[in-house]
Amino acid sequence: MNFDKEFDASGLNCPLPILKTKKALNDMTTGQVLKVIATDCGAVKDMQAFADQTGNTLLSNTEVGGKYVFFMQKK
């Protein structure tokens, strides 16, 4: 999947992956896609909850070799 920005939240625990996702989205424009990599298994539910409550779209959510990869499209 194409993306405009990427950050690696590996090793970070709750609530850092969400806070850093929010910060990364702040610098982006509507429609752009952010790729986030995380190792915190709690982030799976949290990223969806973040998307639901902020209106951003979680385009995909996959697990690759013990890491979670998210693609979030900015509202």
């Binding site: 806070l19 409550q53 902020t54």
Partner: peptide
């Protein structure tokens, strides 16, 4: 601090 920062991130 966790709840406040997260809530702020959620708007």
């Amino acid at each position: 601090f966790i709840l406040a920062s997260t809530a702020a991130a959620l708007g």
